[in-house]
Design a protein around this nucleic acid. Sequence first.
DNA 1: CGCATTTGACCAAG
DNA 2: CTTGGTCAAATGCG
Length: 246
Amino acid sequence: MEEIMTMIFNGINLVKELEFSLSSQEPPESDLSNSLGLISTLFGDANERLTILLAWRNSLPQHEPVRMMDMMMQTEPALTQDHLLRCPMMQTTVEGLDTSRPRGGWMFPPDDNYTWRKYGQKGILCSTFPRAYYRCTHQKLYKCPAKKQVQRLDEDPYTFRVTYRSTHTCHLFTTFPISSAHTTTTTANVPAVVNLAEAMIRNMDSVVPLLGEPYFNHHCLVPGDDGDGDTWNSPSQRYEMSSDPS
DNA sequence: CGCATTTGACCAAG
DNA sequence: CTTGGTCAAATGCG
């Protein structure tokens, strides 16, 4: 939200500058066009982000989302979750999508308020893009077993599948905000989605301030009950790939 | 210097 | 053997 306000104020400043330049002299038409475009983009982006934020807030349950997530993960310690993160403005040009490392201008999938350390990356069969493996930064300190995989989708290079596994135990040792609010819930999966989505939006606001229209296509999957909990869900089978039945 | 990332090697499972 | 996941040395960065 802070970022949205910043964008609005920036827009206002631009308007003031434009007003000043108009009152003092007639600026070149190209400058005028640039200014107007900038202002329009800024306000447009702010509006879109505000709309999305409001939409998500309206869809939020009343419980505290982080707690919902924690509780769910603790009741299902072996749970694996898949999410799709859509990042339409990931890069200004589409070239270089095959690259595996961020360069200037790259925008990576929004994070989830946890700190992750990358420990591996591997090319995956039938997938153009490599899969990245992350574990919790506090794995050593707190024996935190949380891990995640990030995989860019062939059929939509702007979409990342993020697969979570194991629960974070690290925040039990930190000042992570834990309210004493009730944590009972009826549906286990939906709140996790909401939580992630909100986390993503928060992160978008703080990390990618000039990103236009961050919208997300994220799914939370009911994990297959494979019993041992030692296998990751097979994403390609758990997502309906409407366009590509690879 | 400490921490994170990169990347080839290694390993287990099928 | 192939494949996905992890390790760990090398490297980069603040």
